[in-house]
Amino acid sequence: MKSLRDLASLGGLVYSTDHGRMCPDCRQPQAQCVCKRAAAIPAGDGIVRVSRETKGRGGKAVTLVKGVALDADALALLGKELKAACGSGGTVKDGVIEVQGDHVERVMEALKKRGHQVKRAGG
Rank of each mutant, 00 (worst) to 15 (best):
A85C: 09
K83H: 11
A76L: 09
G56T: 10
R49Y: 12
G20P: 04
E109A: 15
R120Q: 11
K66Q: 13
I97M: 04
G56F: 02
L82H: 04
D102N: 14
G79A: 05
K83D: 08
G95T: 07
K112L: 01
G59F: 00
L75Q: 11
Q100V: 11
K80Y: 08
E81A: 10
A110I: 04
V34S: 15
K60S: 11
L64W: 04
A85V: 03
I47P: 01
G123A: 13
K119P: 02
L77Y: 05
E109S: 14
G123E: 15
D73P: 12
A8G: 09
G79F: 05
G44D: 07
T91Y: 05
G11E: 01
V50I: 02
K112Q: 13
R49K: 13
G123L: 13
E109K: 14
V48K: 09
G79C: 08
V48H: 03
D45R: 02
C26I: 00
K80L: 13
Q28I: 03
R37V: 12
R120I: 06
K119R: 15
A72Q: 15
E98L: 05
K55D: 13
R37Y: 08
K60L: 13
E109R: 14
D71K: 04
D6M: 05
H19F: 15
A39P: 01
Y15T: 13
L75V: 02
K60Q: 11
A121T: 05
G87D: 03
K66T: 14
T54W: 13
L70C: 05
